[in-house]
Design a protein around this nucleic acid. Structure first.
Length: 400
DNA sequence: CGAGATTCATGTGAAGTATACCTTTAGGCTTAA
DNA sequence: AAGCCTAAAGGTATACTTCACATGAATCTCGTA
C-alpha cells in the first residue's frame, strides 16, 4: 500500500506541471492590467479622485451584468487610490462589502455591524440595538478628518431583503458628520433595480452613473489569452481552446468570470487525467462540472429546513405542474422522516420564494381561478445532476 | 349570452413568540489597608 | 472600603408562528336579449 502511494507521488512530481500560476484564473485574483475597461476605470478614477483632496466624491451607481468587470474595476481603482493616498499620507479609507453574503450583510443590523467591524470594533451577531451599532459606526467614522468610500457590491440584494431605508440613512449621514466625508459606491447586477427605488434614494445614490456593457467574444478572447499565458505552462493549451472558451462565455452574456473558471477547471481536469495538454474535450467537461458544482454548493450550504423543502420539491418533480399545498404535504412527511420540526405553511411559502431567488427552482404565483391562488413550482436543476442533488439532500437530512 | 358575484387555495402583511445573545446592575465574596 | 466576579434583569435581532385579510381568474348566477 505504502509502496503504491510512493509510486503515485513520485509520478505526480515527475509529471509536468500544467499550471504555472493558478491564482491568475481564480476570481479573487486582481490582475495588474485590466483590458477593455479603460473608459470605465478612467471614469471611476475621475469621480473618486476628489477624495485625494479630502473632498467628498460624488456617489456612484454602477450597473452591469455579472462578470463584466465591475467589482474588479472598482477594486483596482481603489487600490491605486489607496496607494497614492498612502504615499502622500492622505487619510482615505475604502470599505468594500458584498451585500449578497447571507449572514454577513443582508440586514441593516448586519451591514452596519460589518462596517463597524471594519473600523476595528467588535460587534456581536445579535443583542445590541441597531441604533447602538449605528452610533458606534458613526463615532468611528467621524473620529478624525478623513474620506471614506463605501463600496456596496450587489446592493440590489440588500435592498430587496432589507428595504432602501438603509441606503437613505447612509446617503444622509454626511450632514451629521463633522469631520469625515462618506461617499457611496453602489454596484448592481440588476439593471431594473433603480426603478423600484425611492426616488430620493435613487437621486442621491446615483449622482453619477456608470454602465458596464458585456464583453464581446473578441474581448473575452483577448483577456483569456493574457491570463492563460500567465497561468499555464507553455504549450499545454491545445489550439482553439481559448476561442471556444470565449465563445461559450460570449453566449452567456459575456461573463468573463465564467470563462476564466472554465479554463481553470478544464486545466484541473486535464491535470488529473495526466494529460499533457488541455483539449476541447476537457472544456466541455469543465462546462458541465462547473454547472454541477454551482448547484451542489448552493444546495449543500442551505439550512436543513430549506433542504427539506427542496427535497420535497424534487420528490414531486415527476408530474408536470404542482403547487405549494402539494409540496407542503410531502414536506411534512419528509420532516417526520428526517426528525425535523415542520415549519408552518406560511414560512414554507417564504422558503419557496427564497429558493426561487437562488435559482434552484422556478416558482411563480398564479391564480387557478375557481381553484384558488398558489405558486406553480418547478425545478430548475439540470436533469443530469438531479440524482446527485437528491443524494446530497438524503445524506444531509439523514434519510435512508 | 354576458356582466357581475362567488369561491377557493394560498399569497402576504402585521403582530406576537421563542431563542440566542448582548449590556447593565446588584449582590456577594475577596482583598488590601 | 475598594475591587472583582457572577448571576439576574432587562434589552435586542432574527427566525419563526399566528392571525387575519387580500388576491384574482375560473366558475356560477341570474337578468336580459
Amino acid at each position: 500500500m505504502g509502496q503504491d502511494l510512493n509510486n503515485f507521488f513520485e509520478k505526480f512530481l515527475k509529471k509536468q506541471n500544467m499550471f504555472k500560476d493558478k491564482k491568475v484564473l481564480q476570481s479573487a485574483h486582481l490582475p495588474n492590467e485590466i483590458l477593455h475597461r479603460d473608459d470605465q476605470i478612467n471614469q471611476i478614477a475621475q469621480i473618486l479622485a476628489p477624495a485625494l483632496r479630502l473632498e467628498r466624491p460624488s456617489n456612484v451607481f454602477i450597473y452591469g451584468k455579472t462578470g463584466t468587470g465591475k467589482t474588479l474595476s472598482i477594486k483596482h481603482t481603489s487600490q491605486q487610490l489607496l496607494d497614492v493616498a498612502k504615499t502622500r499620507n492622505i487619510p482615505l479609507k475604502i470599505v468594500y462589502v458584498n451585500c449578497k453574503l447571507k449572514k454577513i450583510a443582508d440586514t441593516e443590523y448586519r451591514l452596519i455591524a460589518e462596517l463597524a467591524r471594519f473600523f476595528g470594533k467588535a460587534i456581536p451577531p445579535t443583542g445590541l440595538p441597531t441604533d447602538e451599532v449605528y452610533n458606534i459606526f458613526f463615532r468611528e467614522l467621524d473620529r478624525e478628518k478623513k474620506v471614506v468610500i463605501l463600496v456596496l457590491d450587489e446592493i440590489d440584494q440588500l435592498v430587496k431583503k432589507a428595504g432602501d431605508q438603509i441606503i437613505y440613512n447612509l446617503t444622509r449621514i454626511n450632514s451629521d458628520l463633522k469631520q469625515a466625508e462618506l461617499c457611496l459606491v453602489g454596484i448592481s447586477n440588476d439593471l431594473a433595480f433603480a426603478n423600484n427605488l425611492d426616488p430620493r434614494v435613487k437621486s442621491s445614490l446615483s449622482e453619477e452613473e456608470l454602465v458596464f456593457p458585456p464583453y464581446n467574444a473578441l474581448q473575452i478572447q483577448d483577456i483569456l489569452q493574457g491570463r492563460a499565458i500567465q497561468a499555464f505552462s507553455d504549450g499545454v493549451l491545445e489550439q482553439g481552446v481559448i476561442q471556444k472558451c470565449a465563445a461559450y462565455a460570449a453566449r452567456e452574456h459575456g461573463d468573463i468570470r465564467r470563462a476564466l473558471e472554465l479554463l481553470r477547471v478544464a486545466g484541473e481536469l486535464a491535470e488529473r487525467k495526466g494529460l499533457s495538454a488541455i483539449t476541447l474535450a476537457e472544456l466541455d467537461e469543465a462546462q458541465e462540472k462547473i454547472e454541477k458544482d454551482r448547484f451542489v454548493d448552493v444546495v449543500f450550504t442551505q439550512p436543513k429546513q430549506f433542504q427539506a423543502v427542496l427535497y420535497s420539491i424534487i420528490m414531486m418533480e415527476k408530474d408536470s405542474a404542482f403547487f405549494t399545498g402539494d409540496v407542503y404535504d410531502i414536506y411534512k412527511k419528509i420532516c417526520q422522516k428526517a426528525n425535523l420540526r415542520p415549519l408552518t405553511q406560511r414560512r414554507v411559502s417564504d422558503v419557496i420564494a427564497e429558493l426561487d431567488m437562488l435559482g434552484i427552482i422556478n416558482a411563480r404565483v398564479i391564480s387557478k381561478g375557481r381553484y384558488g391562488r398558489t405558486r406553480e413550482i418547478g425545478l430548475s436543476l439540470p436533469t443530469e445532476i438531479e440524482p446527485k442533488i437528491k443524494q446530497i439532500l438524503e445524506e444531509s437530512l439523514l434519510l435512508t
